[in-house]
Design a protein around this nucleic acid. Structure first.
Lengths: 186, 186
DNA sequence: GCTGTTTAACAACACCGTGTTTAATAAAAA
DNA sequence: TTTTTATTAAACACGGTGTTGTTAAACAGC
């Protein structure tokens, strides 16, 4: 099952490269991090880096892939027992996965984060939560702060969609929609 | 009023640099765009670029500043007549401003977009809409698509906040909060 | 409009990171 | 042990970077 045929040297190289890269990402933007810098920090030859990755962006993508594979594994193990899937539990699972990879997730989602990662998280959330929640129901209590976070980025999502649709709705319609959704939540 | 003391050469230089840069941004990611490339496209000496900007990221920030100043001007002109501010109208104004700068906004908010810009739009939306909407009320009709866009990015906002708060709430609480907000809107 | 002064744009320069290739070495796998 | 293969060091051409002093154009005063 587990492909244990991976050379130990490769394991080590990838490990230290990822570690050094993540350390650097906590200090500065990815665009300011040179491959030379990563290799020096990891004490790995630059040629070896190129044997595994094309550049920093390829490396960060591989790291993201690994993270998502990890999360998918957790979730599939959760849904494998044929019990009825309780949405709340499923979401809880996702948050637990995020918590387990807190350092990396925080890095990829924060200010200097990665828009590509945001999109992938968005897709994950969509697949695992939203699509299974086609039922209505009143949600009860909350911390006001989280509703704000929810509402704020929700507005941005609507604006993005509006632009992607080449603004085939009027500003008026959009304004009303945004106001509606906002007040609905608050 | 207008500071017309700006050298015509500077005006031209900045204009063509911004134009070339935006053209390139429509083709590839900012990280793949070299300063040399921008200058060749604009037919401007590289040294001249450095006289005005530090790098590509400085340039995009200046472009964003200009955009936001533009939007702020529109909005202040809108609120200057001491009529009561109708939130819907205000939001409509914002969307009209976005529409006027559609090309640039779409660029900065799309896949290859800028997280920094997202944050600034978020702040603008917060200041102009959310903070003025501390009243409740049922919002009526809608296009389902926009609610989805709103909900999806809203979840991401909650996750980001959760990570920024060092996850001082339990995964369970977060799961319940997300579910609550989601079903509330749907 | 013509002047001298200011300053923006320019060309040339040294520097550094990149990506690739070579042969040599060391370590893992069979 | 033998075979296979990953890592390494060194060298390479290439291209983008950021700064230098020089040239040319816009500005202010008359």
């Amino acid at each position: 099952m587990g492909s244990k045929k991976v050379d130990r040297r490769i394991k080590y190289t990838k490990m230290v490269l990822r570690e050094s890269f993540i350390n650097l990402l906590e200090k500065k933007d990815i665009s300011q991090i040179s491959i030379k810098e990563i290799c020096e920090d990891a004490d790995i030859n630059r040629s070896t880096f190129y044997a595994h990755y094309n550049d920093q962006y390829d490396l960060i993508e591989k790291i993201q892939n690994q993270l998502f594979e990890n999360i998918e594994m957790h979730l599939s193990a959760f849904t494998q027992n044929d019990l009825p899937i309780v949405p709340v539990d499923m979401v809880e699972q996702i948050f637990e996965c995020i918590q387990e990879n807190a350092r990396l997730c925080k890095l990829l989602l924060s200010e200097r984060g990665d828009l590509n990662f945001q999109k992938r998280v968005l897709m994950l959330v969509y697949e695992k939560i939203i699509s299974d929640l086609t039922r209505g129901g009143t949600i009860s209590k909350e911390d006001a702060e989280y509703i704000y976070a929810f509402t704020l980025t929700g507005c941005i999502g609507a604006i993005q969609k509006w632009l992607n649709d080449d603004m085939n709705k009027s500003p008026r319609f959009m304004a009303e929609t945004i106001i509606r959704l906002t007040t609905l939540v608050l």
